[in-house]
Amino acid sequence: MRLSDLPKGSPAVVDRVDDAHAGDPIAQRLRDLGFVDGEPVRVVACGPLGADPLLIQIGSTRFALRRGEAARVHLKAEAA
């Protein structure tokens, strides 16, 4: 399951971030920001139009990610 499919409020754990294309800088940035294996995440809020962007809580930080960005983050199966 991808982070973009995670329902609001339910806890999950990051598995990995996939590159959308070779050398994807957005995927690299997500990994730098802490979207790495084993990190707990949660969708806190959704934007008013088309539920986009998503507000993601990871650790003690909140990031706004567009759906296309959140779709790069894969979640662990057991947490979903």
Binding site: P25, T61, F63, L65, E69
Partner: peptide, 9 residues
């Protein structure tokens, strides 16, 4: 190309 939002609140 896709330019990210990736914005900290």
């Amino acid at each position: 190309g896709e330019h990210a939002l990736l914005m900290e609140l």
